[in-house]
Design a protein around this nucleic acid. Sequence first.
DNA 1: TAGTGGTCTAGACCACATA
DNA 2: ATGTGGTCTAGACCACTAG
Lengths: 257, 257
Amino acid sequence: MSSAAPTARAPAAGARPRPEPVFAPLYKQIQKLLLESLRVGEWKPGASIPSETELASRYRVSQGTVRKAIDELVGENLLVRRQGKGTFVATHHAPQSQYRFLRLLPDSGEAQPARSRFVECRRLRAPAEIASELGLRAGTAAILVRRVLSFGAGPVVHDEIWLPARLFRGLSFERLANYRGPLYGLFETEFGLPMVRADEKIRAVLADERSASLLEVDKGSPLLLVERVTYSYGDLPVEVRRGLCLTREHYYYNMLT
Amino acid sequence: MSSAAPTARAPAAGARPRPEPVFAPLYKQIQKLLLESLRVGEWKPGASIPSETELASRYRVSQGTVRKAIDELVGENLLVRRQGKGTFVATHHAPQSQYRFLRLLPDSGEAQPARSRFVECRRLRAPAEIASELGLRAGTAAILVRRVLSFGAGPVVHDEIWLPARLFRGLSFERLANYRGPLYGLFETEFGLPMVRADEKIRAVLADERSASLLEVDKGSPLLLVERVTYSYGDLPVEVRRGLCLTREHYYYNMLT
DNA sequence: TAGTGGTCTAGACCACATA
DNA sequence: ATGTGGTCTAGACCACTAG
């Protein structure tokens, strides 16, 4: 093939059926295909995807174009590159991704591993606001999980977690309590729902009776309220979480650029 | 030049004197040179840097390599690309970068423009902790600025801002009060200190007397405490800021990937 | 030794902005 | 028409990993 691309900005030659022949750079089209393969589970979390040259020949583009498509997915932490080994689908089981969505650090000392103590797991109807954030109709069946997170000494976070019941059939208190590893690892492995993104809204509030008791502080203590909506592939909302964090010896960190 | 680079991973031929001939990819070396040009102010905020082809011939590398060097700097918001026009040094004066480091949004409605009301501007000795974060010796001269930020209706943030006096000679209450535009715009234009990065630690606290009064709430109200250290080029710490935010009608947003 | 990601080049062409 | 960023290719070679 000569150096001039036959269709620089035209559809990739005979790659795959695409829903709509969008006008977009080639690498964006490839990216969309990769994303779709991830979404339908063609490549599972933790597994390797085909090599860049393999993908290049499959999609009939150059290796550089595939590379650029992968670049952004790596930037979004959906894929992980390992030189000499391959490119892998991110998993919450990996030590590196274990605390991907946890932004709490202790004021002093090393970050301690998190310990989860489950308090409650009930099936009930989603309140209007929760339902709306999960893209459900109000009153749809949901699962409410309540837990306390500790790092090192005392309790630090009281999480109230809402999940669409239809995505988590068979989830029970026992199953949570017996599961080893991070919660999102369970979502991924047991329910086929890899969590890929979270939006958070953070506020300061006063501890109510329940949180005060669970976190072993006085009612009216200041707590960080972290309201999170977590998404799987394709912007599918899967979880709404209200985390109440005791920031006496921990802080929420963020870096702005 | 043949397709094989003469020194793929070796130093760029006759580019510039480099401090140490580090073993690093060519584009990383170019990046370092660009960063240095930014640091010394060879290209000012808001101005355009030389074109990719110009830089390529200056550094004797291909355009693609320059491009990759620029890519990451764009990713860190240090540079801004504008197709057809050029690549520009980020500035806090630009509307797009105006609220780059402001993560507060109203619960409902559009984001309102921020209004600053300065309360205090004093010169005093930096307390040990502040000094340490600014990389100064305790007791070094510092400037303390206090202000209240409002969006729309009432006050929302009480900022306590510490600056090294030697970097901000001539800063006064009047100068702050009369300045039009964002504070970091003033840092950049009046003191040659472009702010490029900030690290934040976020906690929930109770309003003390002063904050309560400034924010027009009861003492003991829950407030978001945002402790920020802001850096200029070369990881130079320039500002320590304690922001106390009223999160009754606003929230701090964050996106995790 | 072979396979995979990582870097680099030279050159072509597209898209956008401006004169 | 010209200059700038943006995309794409084909091919080469480097660095890392593992059999």
